[in-house]
Amino acid sequence: MTVSVVRFGGSNCDRDALRALEDLGIDAEIVWHEDGLPADTTGVVLPGGFSYGDYLRAGAMAARSPVMDEVRELASEGVPVLGVCNGAQVGCESGLTEGAFTTNASARFQCEHVHVRVERTDTPWTAGYETGEVIELPIAHGEGRYEISEDRLTQLETQDRVLFRYCDADGNLTDEANPNGSKHNVAGVVGERDSVAVLMPHPERAALADVGGTDGRPLLRGFAAE
């Protein structure tokens, strides 16, 4: 099994993801998007960064590159796909997940540690957490505000597809703890299948004890889950 970390021009968290996965004992390799996915791909990371310089909208160009047809096909077969930060923007732009990540309410790039609450534990990404557990992950984005129509948001919540919400250290969903103004404090969602997830915070930057904490490790173990 090999997790393919898809590198676009402008990706910059691909090596972080690779190193975090290797530290967890999960086989992974960086794949240049124009080369397509290797046949033995058993998981896909859409990493953070600024693919195509965020031209038009963050993630818009990468979402329409040919490799994403392959990613969508694998996703529909149940292969785990994780989009982080720019990868989350690519995921929403490509239709893997619903909604859109757009300009932070502050209109500023925000680089800080945040708390998120685990909303479900019956997914490969969150099986290693407790329901309602508060974890600490870094964010680094200018366009992370989750936007979606009220109707679609209601449907998403009814279907229990919100994976993480921004919260304070005690797990309360407050406006102050919502770093980018996301609707209903949404930080991450799953797609049609639970095996497809996107989130703005960086679990791969919270995977090694000597840099940034380890709260992201259980999430990345989703690639090792059966």
Binding site: R57, A60, R64, E93, E98, A100, T102, E147
Partner: peptide, 9 residues
């Protein structure tokens, strides 16, 4: 529809 606009927003 396919690129210039994002129908979500």
């Amino acid at each position: 529809e396919r690129l210039l606009a994002n129908p979500t927003i």
